[in-house]
Design a protein around this nucleic acid. Structure first.
Lengths: 343, 343
DNA sequence: CTGAAAGCGCTTACAG
DNA sequence: CTGAAAGCGCTTACAG
């Protein structure tokens, strides 16, 4: 199967095909990219020559000539974060089908390197998963750009997001319906836009339902959930339910409860936010607000492609992507007796 | 801060800088990429002109001229798999510092599209995370290529992996030391190289320790772990420990035990394989074999860079990356009494 | 130390 | 329908 002579032959270019077919490079180019412009017989000769030479187009050369990169850049603060994997996959699917490459980079670079990424002629459009970059740099890129999940008002670009406040209300409503009257909200980082909206939604929901809501600080991490669990356990009376601003935080909260000998949901109901891949596999499986990450990624990529193809601007902020609460095993009615003491 | 005139100005090119500085484009090019070749005063004039015009190099043009892409392509069977995130991050870190872009693509494309990826002049080297691609396609790419974690003997490329058999022995040795005498191994997919090596290691370890080893089929998924748990529960006498070929499988095994009213590690000790991010957060935290994914990614990227810079070949298969067992809460000494019956 | 010219591998008005 | 020529924006022998 291996043809050893191939190994030594240099890569054929369009001129080789033209020579083999006895036509000009212009004709080869047309036959390949716009066959309708070329005569039947000529086209056949060109195709034969392509076959014979093993020619494949050099996209880099074509792209330079056409002054485009056929490439999307995804910028995320932490490429290893499992939250982003699904989004990458969705974007790559849409982009790949349209013939665009997908480039990924960490967004937490020193500013000159970061700025360069949007200015080096190797990217047509940008997907931003980080709301904490310098707006001057972001707005300095003259490329179509969308923000996903998180956003920054100072970026001059539309954002594809859920309605985080409404989503948080879903969580609080669920707890209220189960019969909980006193609940805790473990917040995200104080200055984070998602955290602010989720807290606002939780507060609005609690007020509307006449619930007593206690705020505990957090930062989306598992550790902050553990800390919050200890604080919660020290409260008297103990709220019977907790709404954490992220799944990670909820995992930490539950793990610390287990360490303290308290059970979820028997002693306390816990709701998370995001519905990361792992939420359904946790023990107990986590009740949480689903962020449709695949859909957000798909919509973002499609809007970018539309802007690229149509030469149209991206348009304003999109309407929120619908979300929903996924009820699993970590929530239940409040204990009828007072919570069991620490054993 | 926004300079509105910037918005309308077209992107400056090297000729604009040359005109502004009153030198040739060759001189601008040299001043930027090889300042030592240019006179002090000229260099200063060029730098001023760069500043004034806001020039940034067009990498696409430079790359075409230099006949390279300054880009690495990562191919993975499933971009959303959390297993790969850490590897992406490690590769991007190494590549980014060397000025290379990182492109990602799903490797499960129809073959013509897949083949094109390695032939379109937009990639200098390939990182392969999939051992199930057509060897003819893979070997047809005339680019430096490394396989990571998984490998295929038919690919003409080195693989950076752990010694899966030795790693599996670590797991079995641990269970033996805890006092387990009868253990189960839940296998991976029958034709998967990793599964084959892990099983062989488990068998060798069991033989060396004089343990009784029962094999149960699996395929690395959580569902297969659940199925295995039911099979295990039906065995008499029940083995007191299980070594699963993947963490996912172990999560499923444990979840199904919980559903059956059996506790880990009280009723059965469970060991996984991989040490995915979630392993330490599971309840109970999972004892597992650590696959150093960040290091594997780093080593792979570094070897590729070395081959690219030196023009040297990649060399043969690398020696295995060291691994270790991470002991957490899911393993303990076997129950002294016979296992509790299903309640 | 600097410039004129060729060229990376394509595409695309412009003629005919 | 086809070709000669220019050009995408750079870099790099080759001269001087």
């Amino acid at each position: 199967m291996t043809r050893p002579e191939d190994r030594s032959r240099r890569r054929p270019k369009i001129a080789d095909v033209a020579a083999t077919a006895g036509v000009s490079t212009a004709t080869v180019s047309r036959a390949l990219s716009n066959p309708g412009l070329v005569g039947e017989a000529t086209r056949a000769r060109v195709m034969d020559a392509v076959e014979v030479t093993g020619y494949r187009i050099n996209s880099a050369a074509r792209d330079l000539r056409q002054r485009r990169a056929r490439s999307l850049l995804i910028l995320a603060p932490n490429l290893s974060n499992t939250f982003f994997g699904t989004i990458f996959a969705a974007i790559q699917k849409v982009a790949g089908e349209a013939g665009l490459a997908v480039q990924i980079s960490d967004s937490r670079l020193e500013s000159s390197r970061l700025a360069t990424l949007g200015h080096d002629g190797r990217t047509d459009a940008i997907v931003l998963l980080d709301g904490a970059l310098d707006p001057e740099i972001v707005n300095g890129w003259r490329l179509p750009l969308v923000q996903l999940c998180e956003w920054n008002e100072d970026y001059d670009a539309p954002a594809i997001t859920i309605d985080n406040a409404a989503a948080a209300r879903l969580a609080v409503d669920h707890l209220a319906q189960l019969g909980h009257r006193r609940i805790v909200h473990v917040e995200g980082p104080p200055d984070n836009v998602l955290a602010i909206h989720r807290r606002a939604g939780a507060q609005a929901g609690a007020t509307a339902r006449g619930l007593e809501l206690t705020l505990l600080p957090g930062d989306f991490t598992m550790e902050s959930g553990e800390t919050a669990a200890r604080r919660w356990a020290a409260m008297t009376p103990r709220p019977t339910a907790v709404f954490c601003a992220s799944d990670e935080c909820a995992f930490g909260f539950i793990a610390e409860c287990a360490a303290m000998g308290l059970a979820v949901p028997a002693d306390v109901s816990v709701v998370g936010f995001d519905d990361v891949d792992f939420a359904g596999r946790f023990l107990p499986a986590l009740t949480t607000v689903h962020q449709p990450r695949a859909e957000i990624g798909r919509i973002g990529a499609e809007r970018l492609l539309a802007a690229l193809e149509g030469g149209r601007p991206l348009g304003p902020r999109a309407e929120p992507v619908p979300t929903r609460l996924v009820v699993r095993a970590s929530t239940a009615a409040p204990p009828t007796t007072s919570p069991r003491p620490k054993q």
